[in-house]
Write a protein that binds this DNA or RNA. Structure first.
Lengths: 252, 252
DNA sequence: GACTCCTTTGTTAATAGCTAACATATTTGA
DNA sequence: TCAAATATGTTAGCTATTAACAAAGGAGTC
């Protein structure tokens, strides 16, 4: 109920742009003002709204007012990514040692995942920052050149480092997928890093929201048979699903 | 006078992102709080800022916040650190290759510093994220275990990596200083890393706000004679100043 | 210069909104 | 089913904001 209410508040705010607490109280007569305040506080922490005196304002509205375009990457298929991230986070067991990539889906995953004792290796600094909130998660950041577009790092040195490291699990996502070209991304060093990770990981979970399907990016880092589990959303085409299942891959 | 002040407020806010009225009052000691309030009100009408409780926020900041998670850590001696960071940022030349640590002062420095072409190595992921906003800055993140308290990394591997890297300049800060025990911090691996950095850096600038003075932390990584320039605030004790100057260190 | 009009700035009191702290209810999970 | 964690409600105190009025400049006119 909290989750839904917060979601609804966010939606209303995105629609109306700006609302006072009084107005919100009228929309949600069943809860107290304080609860709404707390909801707004949380939405602010998530970066979805800005609290102003007497109410709140949607970030979208701000961006509209200021007239500037905002990065669309964070908004593509957000809901699907969150669902996927939730699903993936439920698969993480206590004490596990895992690799997590630096993509937006991994970002949501690190928000959703429970605060259990485990070891996470990541090349995404935004992911690392998010995970730093969790008391019990041990984080190791992969060093290297920082790519500003996706806030992740990669370097030859990191590749070597991973050659001497073992993971129980690697959870990654691709920016493009076709059955013929497999999973691909836009950066060669990232692709190299992921290849290395795949060699050392016992299990590989791929998070792939349906917007990535049918696209091809320059650097392929894995093929269908390289992964163990595919986590996707309900818009995932049925015909593809059978391809994965024929390779003994669990599709979620 | 009004016009210029408003312009200046807008600029400062674009840089710092978010400021309290208290801080603004310190920046503009010659006018009353009410005047600043009115200025903010006007800037809001112009769509350049958003007024929030206790201060204001630049629209640019809003766009940034909407992308990432938002940590609202309030730190000690913020104002002094900002002053120190401003001073330090004025010392950075185009094309330089430098190391920056992961502390809060370095964080402010990365906000204040101009967007010039240069190479920055850092072990602070918050610093790296901040620098990622600058188009012309090349960033390299040091990998390793993430320490959650200060969001910086350190590892033996990183030490080796730096053994093969040269810097023109290292800008670091300590969490404690006494003349006898030198500059110290709370983590052994961080201390090791800094020692290595000091060996490879041609010049070392130390940022030290006065709240650190007289304190001792477990791991000393440098002594007075190891640094070239000390950047501090105006509460820095005079008797200490002479100690530094006797060692040919520029005190700012 | 003295006067008026207009803009900017400062001061104060009253109010609205926020936070913190605790109390209660509800959910989760063992 | 119980205990622990999470979510919600209630209150009191406090802080920031507003509004209204007063004072101080600036600009133009006689």
């Amino acid at each position: 109920m909290k989750r839904e209410r917060i979601e609804e508040i966010a939606e209303i705010l995105d629609k109306r742009g700006k609302m006072s607490l009084d107005q919100l109280e009228k929309e949600f007569p069943s809860v107290s003002q304080m609860t709404l305040r707390r909801d707004l506080y949380q939405l602010e922490e998530d970066g979805r709204i800005i609290r102003i005196r007497g109410g709140a304002m949607s970030v979208k509205e701000v961006q509209k007012v200021s007239g500037e375009a905002y990065t669309k990457k964070t908004t593509i298929n957000t809901d699907a990514k969150i669902v996927i991230a939730q699903k993936a986070s439920s698969l993480i067991d206590e004490g596990i040692s895992m690799f997590l990539d630096g993509g937006t889906t991994a970002m949501y995953l690190s928000k959703e995942m429970p605060d259990i004792a485990c070891n996470v290796f990541t090349n995404g600094i935004a992911v690392a920052m998010e995970l730093a909130q969790k008391k019990n998660v041990q984080i190791t950041v992969v060093g290297g050149q920082l790519m500003k577009d996706n806030l992740s790092t990669a370097s030859p040195a990191a590749r070597e480092y991973f050659a001497a490291t073992n993971f129980e699990l690697a959870i990654v996502s691709a920016t493009a997928f076709t059955p013929e070209n497999g999973f691909s991304c836009n950066s060669q060093i990232e692709s190299d890093l992921l290849k290395q990770v795949f060699q050392k990981a016992r299990h590989v979970y791929m998070m792939l929201d349906s917007s990535k399907i049918g696209k091809i990016n320059p650097y392929t880092f894995a093929h269908i048979e390289d992964i163990d589990v595919l986590i996707t959303d309900d818009k995932f085409p049925k015909e593809y699903k059978t391809i994965f299942e024929d390779n003994n891959i669990v599709v979620m």
